[in-house]
Amino acid sequence: MLELRLVQGSLLKKVLEAIRELVNDANFDCSATGFSLQAMDSSHVALVALLLRSEGFEHYRCDRNLSMGMNLNNMAKMLRCAGNDDIITIKADDGSDTVTFMFESPNQDKIADFEMKLMDIDSEHLGIPDAEYHAIVRMPSAEFARICKDLSSIGDTVVISVTKEGVKFSTAGDIGTANIVCRQNKTVDKPEEATVIEMQEPVSLTFALRYMNSFTKATPLSETVTISLSSELPVVVEYKIADMGYIRFYLAPKIEE
């Protein structure tokens, strides 16, 4: 028996919108720790890891570990039927091949339940070792989204370089080149507007912009984004989800042949 009640149901709606472009089908894993997902895109170039901790739910009952295979587009279709202020409850019985999403309006005058068929998904679970990152950049998520969108109209790849001067996003295409430098800026009115760069050593890596743009679908989840870079390691683009957890996107770099 599984019953997870999330008062801020809009978070789950935003999570689905953030990942459904990247991943078609995925297993949601439910344990005492929380509601989580790890999935790769079909090309095995990017990986998404989601965690919504059990403490973040108003009610969290998970009698035994359960893995539920879902088509994310179908799940998103159902969650779009929930109002932004609705409370969402996820329910499943042991051994059932369906999951139920229950939507309650804030004043309890409308209650809907949507039952979705589960699917069997063979997924490879990757072990992600802790890494020391050469550079960690925290910046406003809307700014990062704007940069990725702007650069993708010029080129297909972005070179992200971190130096003492700041973080530089560069691209090149048939029509020309573009460079956008963001300097560290801690003297802002609100901490979420700051750009903070922690650099152990300079790093420069190349990534496909198509994936970066897909990651920015998570922008509504968090005011800030954290980009962690190390030479020849996948970049980690992390959006914190309120007090509940995170969504992390890992993207393999393009490597010189």
Binding site: H44, L126, G127, P234, A252, P253, E257
Partner: peptide, 14 residues
């Protein structure tokens, strides 16, 4: 020439 690496080249199956 830059080649797109795969995420599976960095993380182990576990």
């Amino acid at each position: 020439v830059r080649k797109q690496s795969q995420i599976t080249a960095f993380f182990s199956l576990g």
